[in-house]
Structures are given as C-alpha cells and as structure tokens.
Design a protein around this nucleic acid. Sequence first.
DNA 1: TTTGCTAACTTAGCAAGCTAAGTTAGCGGG
DNA 2: CCCGCTAACTTAGCTTGCTAAGTTAGCAAA
Lengths: 145, 145
Amino acid sequence: MERDLSLNLHVLTARLDRAADRLLRAERDVSYSRFLALTLVGELGATTQRVLADYLGVTEPSVSRMTGVLAADGLLDVRPDPGGGNRRQLSLTDEGKQLVASVRQDFEDRLAALVAASGVPYAEYAEYTARLLETFDRMEREAGR
Amino acid sequence: MERDLSLNLHVLTARLDRAADRLLRAERDVSYSRFLALTLVGELGATTQRVLADYLGVTEPSVSRMTGVLAADGLLDVRPDPGGGNRRQLSLTDEGKQLVASVRQDFEDRLAALVAASGVPYAEYAEYTARLLETFDRMEREAGR
DNA sequence: TTTGCTAACTTAGCAAGCTAAGTTAGCGGG
DNA sequence: CCCGCTAACTTAGCTTGCTAAGTTAGCAAA
C-alpha cells in the first residue's frame, strides 16, 4: 500500500522539526520548540501565555512550563499584565530578540531550498498549507474545542 | 509579520496529530504514535525495528520502547528474525490487524474532508508532500545522517 | 577457536507534549 | 463587603521524542 498524505505529512514535518532542533541545539543551545515560542512572542505578537499556546497549537500547561524555562534562560521577560487579571505580559529580552533575528530567515531559506529542490512551487504549497490550517482551526472552534 | 510555511507546516501537523491522538485514545485506547507504528508494520511491511524507525522517522531507541509496549498490549508480535543477527521480526497480532483495518481509512477520509473544505486539491497537495519528503530524505542521506 | 568489528537492539535520563487537578486574580451581583 | 464565577496560569505525573552509552548476535579474519 502506498504511503498516504496523513502519514507523509506527519513524517515530513517530524523530520523537519528534528533537523531544525538538532541545528539549533548545536548552534544556539536552544530547542526548536523554544525557538518557535520566542518567534511567536517577538514577531507575531503573542503577549500572553494563553495567546502563545493558541499560536503554537499546544496547551496552556505546556506554555506555562516553557515560559518559566525561557525566563530563567534570560530569553524572555515575564511580568504581570497591567490590564489586570491573572495574566502575564510576555516580551523578548535583548538576547531573545537577537536569537530570533539571527535564526529566523535562515530557517525559511533552508525550507525554501528544499521546496525548490523538490520542484514544488513554494508559494502554492505555502498557500495550501495556510488554507488547511485556517480551515482546521475554524473546524475545531466550531466543534467547541 | 506573516506566518510562514515552516511555522504553518509545524502547527498544522502538530494539531492534526493531536486531534488524531485524542480520537484514538478515546475510541481505541491507543495513541496516534502507536497506531502509526502498527500501520507501518501491517500495511507498509516494516518487519524489523530498524526499518520501522526509518519509516516513522524516529530513532531506534524510540522504536525499541514502543515495540515493547505494543507487544505487552497484545497488538504486535515480536520474535527473533530467522535470518539471524540481533534483529527482531515484527508482525501484527489479530487484534493489531483489526485495529489498523478499522481506523486506517477513517483517518484518511477525515483528512480528505479537511482538504476538500479548504479548497485545496488533494492529489496535488499529496504529491507535493510526497516529493518534499522524498527530497528531504535524499538530502539527509547525502549529508550522512 | 578466538578476536575484532558491525549491525541491531536496549536502557537511562532528559525535554516537551498531554490530561487532571489545583491556585490566583479580578469582576459582578447580592 | 462577601461570595461565586470565570479566565489565566501552575504543578504533578505520564507518554514519547531525543542522545549517550551499553549489550547482543553474527560474521570474517587470523
């Protein structure tokens, strides 16, 4: 039986993630997960843990533990939200900003190189993926997730 | 800044995997990872742990632990390889076969429904993903992974 | 027969995902 | 002012990924 889309998507992304993880650990001593979290805070404006969890597609306990580690490592600044409530304001430290800035484009370039080497049109695949995520997100919200 | 392909691919696949995991745990008391392993043994012919690790895109220790659990749960049969060497012959038990058979098509159907609802052409996206995985696999082998 | 090597597999310990259960901060109504 | 509720967050324990280090089985050469 031929490998289908769900299996291929899983394996491709898992391997890309692990390759990114290995590279980041070797060059910057930070995991890919943590790097993603920093990226979302610094460049996509995730300013509370709840929003960060939503953007990352993980649960709040996962983000809770990660923000603790990132703050301890000096990459993230966590303080009580001036808007009140039991929420925390997240922002990158200078070290965190420098890490994200130096790695970000490199990663997208590598993926773009892979896509080019495959003969797959980058813009088309990126659009399809964004649409799939958008639709999946809507479907889960409608299902009362 | 707009979310790019690497982030979207990661989040989409992570969320699809977790949705699949939740469904399988609720309906069959088995995780998505274990289901994938069983699928690869039963339907794509991964008959040793080394091959299974390669198909799953994980390391041998991960598969080692998983096959132990699957055998203990009565879903997988593990025995010394008649061809000799320190290798093990994997095959599904009747219970394992029944699980894979009952779930397999359902999952692909759900993904196909998502793809259809997004207006993304399934065959095209599946082909692109297969090509990306194939190229990535070749690049990693050439890099001496 | 013994030794060295390779391939396949195992185990320990850590990281990061989850669920379950709990805590904290604020708000609104009585 | 107090109480109940909600939202945001935290912590414990488990699963599954990893790396590092070790063991096992077989093969080939001496």
